[in-house]
Design a protein around this nucleic acid. Structure first.
Length: 496
RNA sequence: GUGGGAGUAGCUCAGCUGGUAGAGCGUCGGUCUGUGGCACCGAAUGUCGCGGGUUCAAUCCCCGUCUCCCACCCCA
């Protein structure tokens, strides 16, 4: 019988050569550009406590409410509830202790399960030794299985929260401020897959934590971002910025209240989604792409007119600083961000060839986040680039890399030549060349054919003649010229 | 989660109101046992996405399901 064919999990994919070469190039560019701006790499674990994301991103957001991969990390070291040689009351004690110690989460459902467990324990003790004791045992085990043993953990849907957690956990406020960090790696969101959107996707991001309340920080971060895109060769990028103020009555909160009032007046002209958002998140109505809602949205009040003096000044200063750095931007008062923690500066970069998911980067300021996660009051700003989308856009504009060839293909024939081939390969490889040595003896015709199919620049021909004379034959596969060279001369020739 | 489109060889695809599969490219081998890219010859690989139904007969028609693509939602 044929074994089952496995396939990649929905929304995930394998990145294959030669595409992986492009991924490497992009990541290499990130390392170089970010280093040049004084950022250091941080690698945070993909698994984090579910609560970290619930608190930072917002428990009500789609990302947290329905898109996270979340599961219980089973607690080790409890006695087996099926093992009645250890008395069951010891088991109940152990569960209670673990709850007190915080090893088992104290949730409503766990508390209910504990109550059930205790009552089953009593029943079991009453019936001990009787025929129905077995049934009581079974029910005890069922009750035990309903307790969530252990922590709820999640695969990271983004990295900002994890970076902030690391900043706090490792006391980075002790370092010279601000702390500038960047990261790259896989993130997970359980959404319906689409062009440029995957369940396992990759982000390249950077965060600036701590430091003063200086608009230059926002501007430098954005300058770095645009430099990175430029170095990647991304074309058709467009930077959009906005300020969404801060959560105070004389600033964003006041604006949101006004916005909601205005929206209620025109409610009947809006679609169902937007009507729902009037209550849940009125700012998001501004983001609507529905054609028939556009005229209505244009009549709504602008947040810029409702910012407090500090936020207004900050926004103006950021724009001045961007001008100073020669960073071109477009303002869009309708640019709001979906994640709860954003404030003041928000920005987004779109690129070509991405279908409806045309945002290749999003970011913004989040001054309250570190404190929200239990750290000291700390400024923060960051961005996340969708690497999948970046790659997609590069490929659309013809930046797809060719297959990686070889520098030297060693065509050997005979056991003597094989030994020489091994030696030659070692020398060439340590000199940094990409070398292929066929594993089995091939006829010269076949060897050259393979060399050329692998995209080799040179074929090093080693047969009895060459071994005898010590003069190796090097053939340039592009122009068919060949010459005899000693081992030493060969290395020098290839190096230049 | 909602709506639309599509699944045939490794890849791109063909397959006529239903008669149990083909092409090109690629791979491998040969012509060609010390000289590749060309040419010619040959070979391998398909439960026609999966399950069920209609039929003498289904890649084709019907239903379900899975996956991919596109859009909505949301976001990178």
């Amino acid at each position: 019988m044929k074994p089952r064919k496995f396939q990649a999990i929905r929304g995930t994919r394998d990145l294959l050569p030669p595409e992986t070469a492009l991924w490497n190039r992009v990541e290499q560019t990130a390392h170089e550009v970010f280093r040049a701006f004084g950022f250091d790499e941080i690698r945070v674990s993909i698994l984090q406590m579910t609560d970290l994301f619930a608190r930072s991103i917002g428990a009500e957001t789609d990302v947290v409410a329905k898109e996270m991969y979340t599961f219980v990390d089973p607690l080790q070291g409890l006695p087996d509830p099926a093992d009645f040689a250890v008395s069951p009351d010891r088991y109940v004690e152990a569960v209670e202790e673990a709850m007190k110690a915080g090893e088992i989460q104290v949730t409503d459902s766990n508390l209910r399960a504990l109550v059930r467990l205790k009552s089953q324990l009593e029943i079991f003790q009453v019936r001990a030794g009787t025929q129905s004791a077995e049934e009581a045992q079974l029910k005890f085990r069922v009750a035990a299985s309903q307790i969530q043993f252990g922590d709820s953990i999640s695969l990271g849907p983004e990295a900002t929260a994890s970076v902030c957690r690391a900043y706090i956990e490792h006391n980075m406020q002790q370092l010279p401020q601000p702390v500038k960090l960047y990261y790259l790696g896989p993130m997970f969101r359980r959404e319906r897959p689409q062009k440029g959107r995957y369940r396992q996707f990759y982000q390249i991001g950077a965060e600036i934590l701590g430091g003063p309340d200086a608009p230059a920080i926002d501007a430098e971060l954005i300058e770095m971002l645009m430099t990175f895109f430029h170095k990647c060769g991304l074309i058709g990028t467009e930077l959009t910025i906005n300020s969404i103020g801060h959560a105070a009555d004389n600033c964003r909160r006041g604006y949101v209240r006004k916005l909601r009032e205005e929206l209620l007046k025109v409610k009947d002209k809006l679609g169902a989604d937007s009507q729902r958002r009037i209550e849940t998140n009125p700012l998001r109505v501004l983001d609507s792409k529905l054609e028939h809602e556009q005229p209505v949205i244009l009549t709504l009040p602008h947040i810029a007119d409702h910012l407090c003096d500090d936020c207004k000044a900050h926004y103006a200063a950021v724009k001045r600083d961007l001008d100073l750095r020669g960073v071109a931007y477009r303002e869009n008062w309708r640019l709001v961000r979906g994640l709860d923690y954003y404030m003041r500066t928000t920005f987004e970069i779109t690129a070509k060839g991405l279908g409806s998911q045309n945002a290749v980067c999003g970011g913004g300021r989040y001054d309250g986040l570190v404190e929200l996660l239990g750290g000291p009051p700390t400024k923060g700003i960051g961005f996340a680039i969708g690497e999948d989308r970046l790659i997609l856009s590069l490929e659309e504009s013809g930046k797809a890399p060719a297959a990686q060839g070889r520098d030297v293909f060693i065509a050997w024939m005979g056991q003597n030549a094989y030994a020489t081939a091994i030696r030659a390969a070692k020398a060439l490889r340590s000199a940094g060349f990409r070398v292929e040595v066929p594993a089995t003896e091939l006829k010269f015709g076949k060897a050259l054919e393979r060399a050329s199919k692998l995209g080799s620049r040179f074929a090093l021909i080693l047969g009895d003649d060459e071994v005898q004379s010590g003069e190796w034959t090097l053939k340039n596969l592009a122009n068919a010229e060949q010459q005899k060279l000693t081992e030493q001369a060969l290395l020098e020739y290839l190096r230049r």
